[in-house]
Amino acid sequence: MKGKRKTLNVTDVMSAMEEMEFQRFLAPLKESLEAYRREQKGKKEATEQKKKDGKDKKTDGDDPDRSREEEAEEEEEKMEDEEVVEDEEVEN
């Protein structure tokens, strides 16, 4: 409320936990958060590399041999990337 924001971020949650005297949970929570961020970063990098590799192989816009399953996987990865961005916005 002080910052006139509608969104909570990581700092807000950590501060509230300190105020409520839940310090013993802060260290494990921070470790879990860092592990989650590393995992999401790895997924994003893998997706970007896959897209880059796919673009290098393609010479004609759309590949007629591409299966629906591959298209669905790519769409799912795009959605996951968007969720990561939204999660990071909430945290910041």
Rank of each mutant, 00 (worst) to 15 (best):
S67M: 01
L33P: 00
D53T: 12
T59A: 13
G54H: 05
K58P: 01
A27W: 04
A46D: 03
M79T: 14
Q40C: 09
E77R: 07
M79Y: 12
E86R: 15
N9P: 03
E48W: 10
E86C: 13
P64K: 05
F25G: 13
E88F: 06
R37K: 12
F25S: 12
T47A: 06
E19M: 08
K55A: 11
K43Y: 08
D12C: 13
P64H: 06
R5P: 01
E83S: 07
D12P: 04
G3D: 11
S15G: 10
M1W: 12
D56L: 11
T7Y: 07
R68D: 02
A72V: 02
S32F: 11
E39I: 04
E48H: 09
S32H: 14
V13Q: 00
E19Y: 06
K30F: 10
K57D: 04
K2T: 10
E18F: 13
A72R: 01
L29D: 03
R5D: 02
D87K: 08
L26M: 11
D65I: 01
L29T: 12
E86N: 15
T11M: 13
S15E: 13
Y36P: 01
E82M: 10
E31D: 08
E19P: 00
K52H: 09
P28V: 06
V84L: 09
E75W: 00
K30N: 13
K30T: 13
